[in-house]
Amino acid sequence: MEDARCVDDRGRWMTGVGGGRVGWRVGALLAPAFVGLGVFVLGPALVSAFIAGTDKTLTGPHFGWVGTANARTAFSDSDLGGAVRNTLVYCLITVIPAVAIGLALALAAERVAHGRALVRFALFLPVSANIVAMAVVFAYMFDSSPDGFANTVVGLFGVAPVDWLGDTSTALPVVALVGGWRLTSFVFIVYLAGLTAIPRSVYEAADVDGIRGFARLRHITLPLLAPTTVFLGVFVTILTLQTFETVAVLTKGGPLNSSTTIIYYIYEVGFTGSFRIGYASMIALLLLAVIVALGAGGALLGRRIRRAREAAA
């Protein structure tokens, strides 16, 4: 049987005989996955792209083609502008701290000699958390009452009670805190895996050469983690661009739309009020374009780093 076409020991693709049968087998291996993706992701995405050019509502049976009218509406929609601004602020105050703190924690946890399992357990916990359950707990901790947890804590520093989720200036940061809390744990897991994947021999060789401490971190660990960092930066940004649950449970976009994210705005436009699913689809399509551009940029950057590494090796 020559049909398992794999790379040989020099990294070249094996080209066995019986190509026709291989094609059939590849089809059988891929078909289940592509049926699922086609019916429930790609097909719906295309349908959405079509709906984006119409004035369809969720409830009305009749709708017509409006061309680019929805897109023009989107660019002059001040509520959408606010949602975009909120989402960018949210990304900024969650992604950067989450990646930085997650990396610092992973670096610190990797060298723990005793209680390693306990450290990992505690720091993995937020990822396993149910976001709705956590939103309930955070809503309670950030209650506006002077006796609430957060107000008691800031009270220790002499700060007057804050209406955390009811104030336009604090609602979004509190929502971001819940998201960032969970995201940091995810970043920690991925970095820890990346650190564990660095062969001990690299560190031992560095040690022999006297490269230790901060120099080792800067010249060896961080460069070796660069692909992980690129992946995390892009993936985590895309995740936060799609923030929905925390907003839906904690603030419902309020007060005065001060915590409405893009995805929550899409939900509001398409699934509540006048159910303008055509316009909602157009916003989603524009967001998708941004996300695809980000993803492609990340993939290119990752490839460039890999190339540089291969050239160096």
């Binding site: 719906p44 349908v47 959405s48 909602a280 695809v292 993803g295």
Partner: peptide, 13 residues
Amino acid sequence: VTLLVPAQVTAVP
């Protein structure tokens, strides 16, 4: 690419 499609895009279809 399917990884990038937000759930809200596909929800209605």
